[in-house]
Simulated assay, not measured.
Amino acid sequence: MKHTPRSRLLACFLLLAGTCLAGSAHAAGTYLSNAQVNNVMAALPPPSTPGSAEDRADRAATDEAFAHRSAADFDAALQEEKFDAFAFAVVIGPDFRADKLPHVAALFKEAELETKDAVDASKNHWKRLRPCPPGSACAKDPEQAKKKSYGYPSGHSSRATVDAILLTQLFPQDADALRQHAQDIGWRRVVKGVHTLQDIYGGRMFGQALASAMLSSPTMQSDLAAAAEELRAAGLVKQKTPAAASQTGH
């Protein structure tokens, strides 16, 4: 699978009224066209108005989750600061490894890059500030906290959702566990004190829409078929998945 070079996604997208604010300055990705990304961004609802009762309640929920975090959840959140699709090996099994599955790794690297582009552009549009629970890292080091990206939608929640949906095409028998693991990754961002529930739910919606658009791509379907064949050769799947079967006409 060839990675298509492209510049960062800039602030061009359709508003809810369907109007594009500016000309596109990024090239289409391997799986998502400019129009698809714009449409997904336009469909994401705005976060709560800053300082509103709803906004304060959302942030208070993060304060509560952070204050009552378990050591296990917090440790997992720290380990997930950087993650990719192979973090789902806890569901699929220990042999689900990037070094053993180059086709699978390339597919998910591209999908995650395109997801990050869209998330970054959305964050920079909404500019929703992250929460800052008492005693958290941002409260201890406000200057460092200012260097963080905005909060809505959560990048972790978006990418974990995309990963889970695409992995379900390859491991349909694990669909429920994959979805739950993606949700757990999102929840632990709240436990860590760096996102609110609204950020996480927004990321989940965003990831679902992005994955749906990716799955409409013939390139994605071809890469999924190659990934499924690689997984079969590695003994990780015993029969053709629905996505692979549709590619071969069976």
Rank of each mutant, 00 (worst) to 15 (best):
T4V: 15
P5N: 13
R6F: 07
S7T: 00
R8G: 02
L9A: 10
L9W: 14
A11K: 08
F13T: 12
L14H: 14
L16M: 03
G18F: 13
T19F: 12
T19C: 02
L21M: 15
A22D: 01
G23K: 03
G23L: 00
G23P: 02
G23V: 09
S24E: 08
A25N: 10
A25Y: 10
A25Q: 14
A25R: 05
A27Y: 01
A27L: 04
A28Q: 07
G29K: 01
G29S: 10
G29E: 13
G29N: 13
Y31N: 11
L32T: 08
L32Y: 03
S33F: 03
S33G: 11
N34E: 13
A35C: 01
Q36Y: 01
Q36N: 10
V37F: 05
N38H: 12
V40G: 13
V40D: 00
M41V: 02
L44Q: 09
L44E: 07
P47G: 05
P47Y: 05
S48T: 10
S48I: 07
T49Y: 08
G51F: 06
G51T: 11
G51E: 02
G51Y: 12
G51Q: 07
S52N: 12
A53D: 15
A53R: 02
D55T: 04
R56S: 05
D58A: 15
R59P: 15
R59G: 14
A60Y: 02
A61Q: 06
T62E: 02
D63S: 07
E64N: 09
E64G: 06
F66K: 14
F66E: 08
F66D: 13
F66T: 11
H68V: 04
S70F: 06
A71M: 15
A72C: 07
A72P: 01
D73R: 09
D73G: 14
F74A: 04
F74T: 00
D75R: 09
A77S: 11
L78I: 09
Q79S: 08
E80H: 03
K82R: 11
D84A: 13
A85L: 01
A87G: 05
A87F: 03
